[in-house]
Design a protein around this nucleic acid. Structure first.
Lengths: 215, 215, 215, 215
DNA sequence: AATGAATGAGCATTCATTCAT
DNA sequence: AATGAATGAATGCTCATTCAT
C-alpha cells in the first residue's frame, strides 16, 4: 500500500513513532495489515498474520496500535484518502464535468483492478467500522455534489426538475453507486471489458440517458 | 420477515420438517435468525441468540440447520428472492421501460426502508457467503439486462454505441448500482426525501442524462 | 471445600444448573477453584488449573461462571458464610459472652488451621474484590457488635465510657482484629501453641485487660 | 511518601546512584512507585505507570531496579520502617505501658489516615512478597513483645497465667491485630470517629478488659 | 544515565458444534 | 423433536524485561 500515493502516514489513531526505526516498523505493519485484511477479511485476519508478514514480533503490533479494530480503521481511512487522491489526480485537467466523469470512472476502475484489497477492505468496513464507512462515502458524495453543483451553475449540465440541492445530492449518490458497482463487476469480479470501454458506456448513460436523443 | 411475501420456507439447505410442530419451529428459527443477523451482523450474531429469540433450546437449532453459515445462506437466498418478487410485482403493469424503472426504484427504496435488516444481511453476504452474494447480483443483473435488451429491441431506449450486448450488461450493472446506493442513502441512512422524489430524480438522470436536451 | 458445612451452594452469581449432572459439575468446579486459588493465589491461578482439577474441559467452566473474578467472588462469599456458620455453631451453647468469646476464638483458630486456603482467599479478596471483602467483615462486625450490645444490656460486660454504640462497635472491630491476627500467627504461620492455649491467653486479655485486677 | 520521615532511601535492593542527578531520579521513581502501587495495587500497577509519574523513560526504571517486585519490596520495607519510626516517636515520652499503648494507637490511626496507600501496600505484600510481609509483622511483634515483657517485669501490667513468654508474645499479636483492624476500620474505611476516641475505647479494652472491675 | 523500540510467554474468554438423554 | 451440558480450538491482548543507541 505504500504506493497508494500521497504523503499518507498520519491518518489517525496510531501512536506516532519517535525514531526513524519506529517509522519504518509502523510502515511495515500498515502494509502487512493491508495484505492480511485484503486476503483474509477482517474476521479471518489475525494479528499474528500481520506481524508475521511485517517480520516483527507480536508485541510490536501493540506498540503502534491499540487493537485489531484500530488498525483496520486507520487502514480504511488511508485507503479512502488514497482513492480520493487518485481519482482527483486523474480528473484535474478535465475540460468539463462530463470529461471529468469519464476520466474519473476509468481511473477508478483501473485503481480497483490494481488494488482489489482496497475495495474489499473499504466495503467490509460497513460491518466492522460503520462510522468510518459512512464517513468515506459522505466525503466522496459531498465532493461529488459540489462538482455537480458547480457544473450546473456553469451551465455545463442540466438542472433537472425540483429543488436543485436535492437533485445535486441524489445525483451524486446515484453516480457513485454506478461507479462502485461497475468497479466491482468490471474491476474485480471479471476483467473482460477494458476500463475505457466501461467508462465509455457509463459516460454515454450518464450524459445522455437511456432515451433517444431527439437530435 | 414472514411477510416478505412468496411461498417462503423452502429456499434450500434446511432439513424438511415432517410434522406441523416442526414446520412451526423452523419458521420461528428463520424469523429469529433474520432478526439476530439483522441486528447484530453475522459475526456478532450467536446461535444462542437465535434460539433465545425463537424460544427453543440450543440443540434444536441443529435439528434444522447444519451450521450458522447454512442459516445465513438460506436467509440470503430467501431475501434475495423476496426482493426480486417485490420489485417485479411493482413493475409488472408498467407501460414501458422507463416507467418500469421509475416504479421499480420507488418500490425498492420503500422496501429497503421497511426492511433494513434485509439490506444489511444481503450486503454482509459479500464477506460471509460470497457465492450467494454473487448469485444474488448476477441474477438481478441478468434480469435487468434482459429487460434492457427487450426495450432496446422494441426501440423504447437507445442502443448506445459499440457492442450492444456489452452495453446492455454494463448499463444493467450501472443502474443496479444506482439503485443500491440510493437505497442505502435514502432508504436506510436518512429518510429525508420520499422514495417518490428520489425515484423522480433518478428517473430523470437515467432517461435523459446530465446533458442538456438539445430541444 | 464441600466440608465447610452448611447447605452451601447457591451463594450467588453462578448460573443454576438444571440437571443433576450439572449440579455435580458445578460442585466440582467450586471445590477445584478453592484448591487452585488457595494454592496459587488469585493471579497465579489459571482457569485451566481449575478445570484440570475438576476434570472437565475448559469451556465447561464458562457454562457456570462468567469469569475468573466471578468464581472468586462466589468462593469468598461461600467461605465467609462457612466461617460464620462454623463459629456460630461452636458458640451457640456458651453460657455467657466471655465463654462465647473463648469458644469462638478457639473454633476460629482450629478452623483456620484446617482450612488455610480459606484464610488466604478471604484476605486476598481485599485486593481482588474489595466489596466482597468489606461485606465479609462488615457482616462479621455487625454480628459481633450485636452480641456485645446484648451482653452489655444483660450486664454481662462493662459498658466502657462514652457513647455505648460507638464503644460496642469499636470493641467488635478490635476483637475481630485480635482473632484474625491470632489466627494468622498461631493458625497458619506457626502452630506451636494449641488453639486452646491461644484462646486462653486472649480470653484473659479481653476479659481482664493488661492491668492488675484490684481484687 | 518523601515525608514518611527517617533517612529514607537506602532501604535495600536498588542500585546506589553515584551522581546527584541519579539520586533525584531514584527518589522520583520511589515516590512514583508508592503512588502507583497505592492507587492501583500491585497487579494493576504498571512500570510505565511508574515511569510516567516519575517523568522518565521506561528504560530508566531498570537503571535503578531489577524488577517490579524489587521496587515493591523496597517500598514495603521503607514503609514498614516509616511506620515503626512514626509510632516509636509518638510513644517515646510515655510515662508507662498503658500510656504508650494509648499514644501509639492514636498515632497509628492518624498515620494510616494520612497515608492510606501505605496501609494497602503493606497488606498486599502478603500476596506478593510474603517474606517481607512476615518480616514486617515479626519485627513489629517482637518489639511489642519486648515492651510488654519489660512492663510486666516492672509490674506495670499483669502477667496473666501460664508461661509468661507465650503470654507476652500472644498478647503482642493480639494487640497488633486490634490496632490493624481499628486502623482499617476507622482510619481508612470510614473516619467517623476521631483517632483519639478510638484510642480511648481500645485503651479501656486493653487495660481493663470487658469484665466489670470489682473496684 | 537515559531512552524507547522490540520481544514473546502467558492466559482469559468465546462460541459453534456434538451428543447423551 | 427437543433439550442443554460438555467440548476445546482459536486468538486478542498485556506488560515485564531486554538491549541497541
Amino acid at each position: 500500500m505504500a504506493d497508494l500515493g500521497g504523503s499518507a502516514a498520519a491518518a489517525a489513531g496510531e501512536k506516532e513513532p519517535r525514531t526513524e526505526r519506529g517509522r519504518k516498523t509502523l510502515r511495515r505493519l500498515i502494509d502487512a495489515a493491508a495484505a492480511e485484511f485484503g486476503e483474509r477479511g477482517y474476521h479471518e485476519a489475525a494479528i499474528t498474520g500481520i506481524t508475521r508478514r511485517a517480520g516483527v514480533a507480536l508485541g510490536t503490533f501493540y506498540t503502534y496500535f491499540e487493537s485489531k479494530e484500530e488498525v483496520f480503521r486507520a487502514l480504511v481511512r488511508e485507503m479512502s484518502r488514497a482513492t480520493r487522491v487518485h481519482v482527483a489526480e486523474a480528473v484535474k485537467d478535465a475540460r468539463d464535468r462530463l470529461a471529468a466523469e469519464r476520466l474519473g470512472l476509468e481511473a477508478f476502475i483501473s485503481f480497483v483492478r490494481k488494488h482489489p484489497e482496497l475495495y474489499r477492505i473499504i466495503e467490509e468496513a460497513q460491518f466492522v467500522a460503520h462510522d468510518v464507512y459512512r464517513e468515506h462515502y459522505l466525503t466522496f458524495a459531498e465532493a461529488y455534489r459540489r462538482n455537480l453543483a458547480g457544473a450546473r451553475e456553469r451551465n455545463q449540465i442540466s438542472a433537472g426538475s425540483g429543488d436543485v440541492a436535492e437533485t445535486d445530492e441524489a445525483r451524486a449518490w446515484a453516480l457513485i453507486g454506478m461507479s462502485v458497482f461497475l468497479g466491482m463487476r468490471y474491476g474485480i469480479w471479471d476483467q473482460s471489458l477494458s476500463p475505457a470501454r466501461v467508462a465509455d458506456i457509463a459516460l454515454q448513460l450518464m450524459s445522455d440517458g437511456l432515451r433517444f436523443r431527439s437530435v
